[in-house]
Amino acid sequence: MTEKLENIVKHKDILGLKESFSGKPSPRLQLTSLVDETENMQVLDSIQVGFYGNGSSSFVSLRILKFEDMPNWIHWSSLAVTGGGFPSLQQLHIRKCENLIEIPNCLPLLELLFISECWQLQFDDFIDYPALQTLHIESCNYPTNFTLNLFSKLKFLQIQDCRYLRFLEISEELHHQELCFFQELKISECHNMESFSGRGLPAPNLTTFSVSNCNNLRSMPEQMHTLLNSLQTLIISGCPKLVSFPKGGLPPSLQTLTIQNCVNLTPQNEWGLRNMASLSCLTIECAYANVTSFPEDGLLPASLTFLQISEFPVLETLNLSGLQHLTLLKDLQIHSCNQLQILSDGSLPSSLSSLTIAGCSLQLKDWCQRDRGIYWDKISHIPTQSIMEEET
């Protein structure tokens, strides 16, 4: 270890490190010279003020700092940073430091923070990262409540496998402050998460919103139709307790909507989909126990170009009168609807260029046979057809 330290100290200028201490580094200063070699530091347990040496401002050129696989590391004192350490740091990555409980709360130029498998790390409302744009938190016990508008310049937030996260909220004191830079939000594998802020998310430039495998999520953000007026992509997957969208429905700007494995989020006219003139791609993959016919008349918007429905276990009828007004529809896909056997009165849109029905009943397959099936006239105008009893 000593030989490795001396070698890295010798070449610290190549790493962009300022000379910040004199003499031979003590064991407490080991990490000073290992900013580029911080994997597998099994013995380090604390970073204190001595980490920065004798200079008033340390590591002035360092922009990217990564720590990984340091199981004994517990403390990284904030006092150590407020004295002038890391004035240019833009990216901080911390992985597999399962006993770390604190990180510096003031990094003025930090733009990216990536934290993974730090089970004891706690976040609080005193964190001051005014330049933060990208935040990724994965496999951590904390936070329980996450306050979004602590980071006014945040563009991308991903929270994954945070087992105790319950609420994503907006601070009451800062509720008037919009998240003007916020563009993408992804929440996944947070099984105790229940809801978003009751007042909604004031993010006028959010374009992508994804929530997946949050078993206890009961509600989406309020006022989505007005506060998220730039939203283009919404993906909701694996949220079995979600039963409806907020009053007012979905943002009219939405272009792609995907709903998967949300067995109680049943499509209905109250969603206001028909009035969403920008919606072009709709995917619904849910094991609804009571949907025997789809879609309802007046449910879908005429703007759709792609429609996929999958895993409807009791679906028997494709309601053509709910599809025939879709004059822009190019691709219709139906997968794993084993009871589907009836194409109702009406016709499929003349705009269709591709029809796929996979995993349907044998009867439906026979009735769609070229020239002799009773449904052939309904599908004969579609250039590309694939009707299969089994999924490939």
Results as ranks from 00 to 15, higher is better:
S78W: 05
L89E: 03
G84S: 10
G83T: 06
Q90H: 12
D69I: 15
S78G: 15
W76F: 13
Q90F: 04
N72M: 14
Q90E: 15
H93M: 09
Q91N: 13
H93P: 01
L79C: 02
P87C: 13
Q91H: 08
S88W: 01
P87E: 08
I94V: 14
Q91F: 04
V81P: 10
L92M: 04
L89I: 09
T82F: 12
F86Y: 00
L92S: 04
S78F: 02
N72R: 15
C97H: 06
I94H: 05
G83P: 00
G84E: 13
C97L: 04
V81D: 04
A80S: 11
Q91W: 01
G85F: 05
F86K: 01
I74G: 00
C97S: 01
P71M: 05
W76Q: 06
H75Q: 00
G83F: 02
G85R: 00
A80W: 02
F86R: 03
E98S: 03
A80T: 07
S78T: 11
P87S: 13
H93E: 11
C97G: 00
E98F: 12
G85M: 00
L89V: 09
Q90T: 11
P71Q: 00
W73P: 03
C97F: 03
L89C: 11
I94G: 08
H93I: 14
G85P: 00
S77V: 13
W73E: 06
W76Y: 09
